[in-house]
């Protein structure tokens, strides 16, 4: 107990000694910082001078932000969140990604495509290692290390997501659900590391993923009920006089489900990043170290940790809802009513 009492004031004094000059010289340092950050635009300005395309324009906006403040902060944030053709490593320069146009379609490799590929590469590496371990494993050995960590997630998806929502015949959909879960999870997590971009924060990516869920759901429904059963499903088992209302509602319902998936994932991932960036930009806009130390950094750290949780949560929610929709589509009439009740919540 005595030692703690001695050390604590000392440590506190040290911290104050470090921060005091900063706090007193707020303005001087702030201007120095703006001078530092204006180094970056100098570099990029040289690039911009030659190219003068839309993407580097955003770069110059980043540089101008220090002097112009509020108006441009929004641009920088959007630049970080939106997709573009430049993979920027801020103080070290940037990589221009190739632009590919085939048959009138622009299929350029953008920042988010690169992230998707990074995620895919990571997934393939991790799961080739894990899968290799399982190939050499008998029922008597226990997994350890990475295999054990992944098994916990796989087992969770298998039992708590797939089996409990789809029920009979859930094994068929497991590869899709597992892939979608880990794909989204890795996308979300890679978006949290510096220089990363959140591919799942792009509506096109989430739309594609939910279209897959849509197709999987529809095919599962057709397989489970046949064409006649599928059409009967659209009437929701009501009297024929209500069909004129029910059928359009059910058809719209088929599309709202993937739409909700799209928006939910995209909005969650985007919102988190906007909040973090906004918190950090508060200190730049107010040009104050006190705000940076007291507000921006702690809150940004807090939101970042929250994002870490959200990364898992949203991957789980997407998978969970996919499984739920598949379960709803394949459910037989006996299960229809309680399952429908869940869907409305």
């Amino acid at each position: 107990m005595k030692r703690v009492n001695v050390i604590q004031p000392k440590a506190l004094l040290k911290v104050i000694a470090i921060f005091l000059p900063l706090l007193f010289n707020v303005n001087g340092l702030a201007s120095a910082a703006s001078g530092q950050s204006s180094d970056v635009p100098k570099n990029s300005a040289a690039v911009v001078a030659g190219a003068a395309v839309s993407a580097p324009a955003a770069e110059s906006a980043h540089g101008a932000e220090a002097s112009e403040g509020e108006e441009k902060a929004g641009d920088v944030i959007m630049h970080h969140i939106l997709d573009n053709n430049v993979f920027a490593f801020e103080p070290f320069g940037s990589v221009n990604l190739p632009k590919i146009v085939i048959g009138g379609f622009d299929i350029s490799i953008t920042k988010h495509v690169v992230m998707l590929w990074l995620v895919s590469a990571l997934l393939l590496i991790v799961f080739s290692v894990v899968g290799g371990k399982y190939k050499n494993m008998t029922a008597r050995n226990a997994p350890k290390g990475l295999a054990n960590a992944m098994e916990a997630l796989v087992e969770f998806i298998r039992l708590d997501v797939a089996k409990s929502n789809i029920g009979h015949g859930y094994e068929k959909h497991l590869p899709y659900l597992l892939t979608v879960f880990f794909f989204i999870l890795f996308c979300n997590l890679l978006g949290l590391i510096p220089y990363g971009a959140t591919a799942t924060g792009n509506v096109n990516v989430t739309l594609t993923l939910s279209i897959f869920t849509f197709f999987v759901t529809q095919i599962a429904a057709f397989k489970a009920h046949g064409v006649k059963g599928y059409l009967q499903h659209l009437t929701a088992g009501t009297h024929w006089s209500l069909w004129i209302i029910m059928v359009p509602i059910e058809i719209i319902g088929q599309f709202t489900k993937p739409f909700a998936l799209t928006i939910r994932l995209f909005a969650n991932m985007t919102a988190g990043h906007i909040i973090i960036l906004s918190l950090i930009f508060i200190s730049f806009i107010l040009k104050s170290y006190i705000v940076a130390a007291a507000v921006s950094v702690p809150f940004a750290i807090f939101i970042d940790l929250l994002e870490l949780f959200v990364a898992f949560l949203q991957a789980f929610v997407f998978t969970m809802l996919s499984a739920l929709f598949i379960g709803l589509a394949t459910a037989h009439e006996g299960h229809e009513k309680p399952a429908a009740g869940v869907a409305h919540h």
Binding site: D83, I100, F105, D106, I107, S108, I109, T110, H112, V113, L116, W117, S120, T179, V180, F183, A199, N202, V203, N204, V205, L207, T208, L209, I211, F212
Partner: peptide, 14 residues
């Protein structure tokens, strides 16, 4: 804004 290229790559990659 829709980006067909990204949709294409996402689909292929996935």
């Amino acid at each position: 804004s829709p980006n067909p290229g990204l949709i294409f790559w996402t689909a292929i990659t996935f």
